[in-house]
């Protein structure tokens, strides 16, 4: 059902968990059916750009949820916010060597979670400014 890469990431997910003093948190999904992810981000300034220093994801989920959660972190870390917000579910699935069609919603959820976390960071910053 799953690619070798997906199973590998599931067995050893590097970017799951949470960040204690996160700069932004994105909570997405529907808790009543367990389709849920919380994305934590840490942002740093580099050459006048806002860069994702760290990303961690909490997920309730299945194999695909854990694998996509970790992978969205892997792709996003080191990227400027504008680039990171444009990551698509296809980018995540591609990195995993493809996902079964019925599991693409996990990839979508990871992408949405990251986007929500970046938006949360921007909102907080706007208020602070």
């Amino acid at each position: 059902m799953f690619s070798k890469k997906t199973m590998e990431v599931f067995r050893n997910p590097k970017h799951v968990g949470f960040i204690k003093d996160a700069d932004g948190i994105g909570r997405v999904g529907n808790p009543s059916c367990g389709d849920i992810m919380w994305v934590y981000i840490k942002v740093k300034q580099k050459n006048g750009k806002e860069i994702l220093e760290d990303v961690k994801v909490k997920t309730f989920g299945c194999v695909a949820a854990i694998a996509t959660a970790s992978t969205v972190g892997e792709i996003a870390i080191g990227k400027a916010l504008d680039k990171a917000i444009a990551i698509t579910e296809k980018d995540i699935a591609k990195k995993l060597g493809g996902l079964p069609k019925e599991k693409m919603h996990c990839s979508t959820l990871s992408k949405k979670g990251l986007k929500a976390a970046i938006e949360d960071y921007r909102n907080k910053k706007e208020k602070a400014d």
């Binding site: 799951v16 968990g17 808790p31 367990g34 849920i36 909490k58 309730f60 854990i66």
Partner: peptide, 9 residues
């Protein structure tokens, strides 16, 4: 459970 957002809710 450590990586689950639902824990403790």
């Amino acid at each position: 459970r450590e990586i689950s957002p639902l824990r403790g809710k």
